[in-house]
């Protein structure tokens, strides 16, 4: 039994003019504790895949099973981190972090304290009474991470969470997210179009082709790169080689 089993899902969008197949016959599995990246050109249905796994949409055909249970609606076991932080500007940082707990009626003292502790770990305890517009982009994305992890999901869906940040902040946050997920033994699925990011962060990189989205190839990242931080991966001697391989493959599907 796999942790997450995506079994031959196809998803089509209907408009007045057309029926467009966004993803077609997609099958892959993720084992517990793995970090998988979905890499592909725009239009390969990356975000659609995350929406389906999050239970926000139902696939047209096929099933998605999490711990052998079919996903039919959003649930506590899956956390979703969006491209931008989308913190609510009218809530304080603390209130933003508690949002998931509030929505799922889990605002217990214990849960609150754990979340506040986590906020502290992220170096954000000074700003918990502040409002999102008083924070920098990197800080805001860190708050979004706390918000996502507050409800203790087992699987994290990351939809290009670093794409809106400047390069330096992005590198720092990659390290932070990778180490946070590793120590908490979370399983993660990252969607990205950044080859370097995919190599640096993942155990496996799944390459998608577009129109409709299909799995083109799967790259295993060697063990010695998995065990070091994303920043160290970027500086390792064989990073360039992996980058080159994936680059060429990606070019072929453009």
């Amino acid at each position: 039994m796999s942790f997450l089993h995506v079994d031959s899902i196809t998803h089509a969008y209907f408009t007045k003019e057309s029926a467009k197949v966004a993803i077609s016959e997609l099958t892959f599995v993720i084992e517990e504790g793995e970090f998988i990246s979905l890499l592909g050109p725009s239009g390969c249905g990356k975000s659609t895949i995350l929406s389906l796994i999050a239970g926000l949409q139902q696939p047209t055909t096929g099933t998605i099973k999490l711990k052998n249970k079919k996903i039919t609606s959003p649930n506590n076991q899956v956390g979703y981190m969006l491209q931008q932080d989308y913190l609510f500007p009218w809530k304080t940082i603390e209130e933003n972090c508690m949002l998931g707990l509030k929505l799922t009626n889990q605002l217990t003292v214990e849960n609150k304290e754990r979340t506040l502790g986590f906020l502290d770990e992220m170096g954000l305890s000074d700003v918990k009474k502040a409002y999102p517009n008083q924070l920098s982009g990197g800080m805001r994305q860190r708050v979004a991470l706390v918000r996502t992890l507050a409800t203790q999901p087992d699987l994290l869906l990351l939809d290009e969470p670093f794409s809106a940040l400047d390069y330096q902040t992005k590198l720092k946050l990659e390290n932070l997210v990778a180490s946070t997920l590793k120590t908490r033994k979370k399983t993660a699925l990252l969607v990205t179009h950044d080859i370097g990011e995919a190599i640096a962060m993942s155990d496996r990189v799944v390459l998608l082709s577009k129109h409709p989205g299909k799995i083109a190839r799967v790259f295993e990242i060697p063990k010695h790169l998995r065990d070091i931080t994303p920043f160290e991966v970027r500086n390792s001697p064989d990073f360039g080689m992996h980058f080159q391989t994936i680059w060429e493959e990606l070019e072929a599907y453009e």
Partner: peptide
């Protein structure tokens, strides 16, 4: 995307209205 945040936590329509749409 504010609505998407609420829904991804399993929030219902009433919660979506109170927590995101109205404020």
């Amino acid at each position: 995307n504010f609505v998407k945040v609420i829904r991804s936590f399993g929030g219902n329509k009433k919660q979506t209205f109170v927590e995101a749409i109205l404020p």
